[in-house]
Design a protein around this nucleic acid. Structure first.
Length: 296
DNA sequence: ACTCATGATCGCAACTTTAA
DNA sequence: TTAAAGTTGCGATCATGAGT
């Protein structure tokens, strides 16, 4: 089955549009007391902070302090901040809503959406949240959302930057976005690299977007560039790989993916479905292990 | 958190239309 | 002519099962 030349478009890094092509290293060190406190409480002494696990708490704490010291407490105490895993090039978004009642009085609402993929450090979260809060202030306090980074936004940006001199509030951010999964063109004169957030490129089906050459998977990498250890597929994964097609075939046309997985689960538990290999021994072993636990 | 397959979902870039 | 706003299609990621 030869690869067909459907080509991945985006290479590593950001595409132009949001701003300059990436930048100079990391965001400046944190300045806010809230962040310092959140980091101190969340991180084990000696160990580094698990940002992914504590980002929600950090975000709400930052909002509280930013509102108090940067916006004079004029923003709502309760404010919706959600995380979105599908924002890949956008660090954060502020959504506006205006509700006009029959009395003619208008209510202004705002909420902030943050990217789990882009905001992988507390410093990036800090700068982005402050940026989005300036949008929220422009909308809720000045009733002005356009232009997005016009004079009203800049007024708030200047104000909060006086309070937090080390945090930059720019009209566009340029973060280095870490993409753990790397691919590379195998043509020696090309060697174009591709980064993804998941193992999503089928190297047998897709080719290099630059030269149409064959691609290879380089592996998963940590943020510091070192190679992460690869995990081998579990027995159940291999079972899915082997039997997904036939199980789906057996079910009525149009059966949703979820139900195909349920059926695969049934087949798996009944000993492999095809009957060519018995897992009975494994199962009794598991049962024994369970009894041992119960007997404790 | 990650392994497998693949349809559903949705961000986003590119294109088309409207305003100015 | 340009920008802004609306539309559309592509493709990257999520959901989903069990196990490590």
């Amino acid at each position: 089955n030869p690869y067909n030349p459907k080509t991945p478009k985006s290479a590593i890094g950001r595409k132009p549009g949001g701003g300059a092509y990436a930048g100079f290293g990391e965001a400046p060190p944190t300045h806010s007391k809230a962040l310092a406190a959140a980091l101190a409480s969340a991180a084990k002494p000696g160990k580094s902070l698990n940002f992914a696990r504590h980002k929600e708490t950090i975000a709400t704490e930052l909002y509280r302090e930013f509102n108090r010291d940067g916006f004079g407490g004029a923003l709502p105490e309760k404010f919706e901040i959600t995380w979105n895993a599908k924002l890949l090039t956008t660090a954060g978004l502020t959504h506006y809503r205006k509700v006009t009642r029959s009395s003619g009085v208008s209510e202004y609402h705002a909420r902030i959406e943050l990217s789990t993929k882009v905001l992988d450090t507390a410093e990036k979260l800090e700068a982005t949240l402050l940026h989005e809060m300036c949008h929220a202030a422009a909308w809720l306090l000045d009733k002005c959302a356009k232009p997005p980074h016009g004079s009203v936004f800049k007024k708030w940006a200047a104000r909060v930057m006086r309070v937090y001199p080390v945090v930059r509030v720019d009209t566009c951010h340029s973060y280095q976005i870490h993409q753990p999964y790397k691919y590379r063109c195998t043509q020696s004169w090309c060697l174009q690299e591709y980064g993804r957030h998941s193992k999503s490129i089928d190297v047998d089906a897709k080719a290099c977007g630059v030269c149409n050459g064959k691609l290879e998977f380089l592996g998963k990498f940590n943020a510091d560039g070192t190679k992460a250890e690869e995990k081998k597929a579990t027995a159940f994964s291999l079972f899915v790989k082997e039997h997904f097609g036939s199980v789906k075939e057996r079910l009525p046309a149009g059966t949703p993916h979820k139900l195909v997985m349920k059926e695969l689960s049934v087949q798996w538990k009944s000993g492999g479905g095809t009957g060519k290999k018995s897992r009975a021994g494994d199962e009794s072993g598991n049962a024994d292990a369970e009894k041992t636990l119960e007997g404790k």
